[in-house]
Write a protein that binds this DNA or RNA. Sequence first.
DNA 1: TTCGATT
Length: 298
Amino acid sequence: MTQEEFKSLFGSIGDIESCKLVRDKITGQSLGYGFVNYVDPNDADKAINTLNGLKLQTKTIKVSYARPSSASIRDANLYVSSLPKTMNQKEMEQLFSQYGRIITSRILVDQVTGVSRGVGFIRFDKRIEAEEAIKGLNGQKPLGASEPITVKFANNPSQKTGQALLTHLYQTTARRYTGPLHHQTQRFSRFSPITIDSVTNLAGVSLTGPTSAGWCIFVYNLSPEADESVLWQLFGPFGAVTNVKVIRDFTTNKCKGFGFVTMTNYDEAAMAIASLNGYRLGDRVLQVSFKTSKQHKA
DNA sequence: TTCGATT
């Protein structure tokens, strides 16, 4: 949404004294929120009643009174992971509400199935409240959950947009350059080959299994400098890749040595694993397998 | 550093 569209939407309610759509300083992209000052205070109520909950494209907008600008409300946004898949937004809010006033919350869901990804966000009114929630809930098991949840401050959503755009570009254009599978596999030498049978056996025992998104593959022994493009390059030739992810340390932004690749078709995923497990990348020997169920820290 | 997830 542009500043002009923002002004037009809220200007339809009444005369605006001033308004601002907040945008990324570098890219100019909307950060997804803004402020409106109406000449007539009654129009503010009217805007809330009329526009709150309005669905615009993929988003449902929230319209409410702005909180007073203050340093104490900054950095009060939390990222929560390992939530039970059965926990809904209301239940998550109930869990966190003991620590303060929740401004917004969200649980991320699989785009195809609508099932929770076990990951969400909680924005508190005050940073102190968020800090207390981390102290009280990080590493704790909710109700009858089998796994402890992780609660931490959320990343800043800015500056990622450029990389996301590049990833999208790559994803939509890379495959046209790939040839038939049996021609591509010859490009990869195998340092420590495994058999197709061992992959099949593994499939019957401990792998996570296909999700709506496909088959998830665990890749270990990536270099600290590894990025998403190397995963696209390694796995793309074997077939349809829907997603790649390099896991990085948030502080250093260096790869933590592993990543994930999601492939649509089992046969292509199995062939990629058989070919790339033991593959020498630079001075490292990759370990590649189907992702197993998450191992949690004792 | 051997299984994440960042609206």
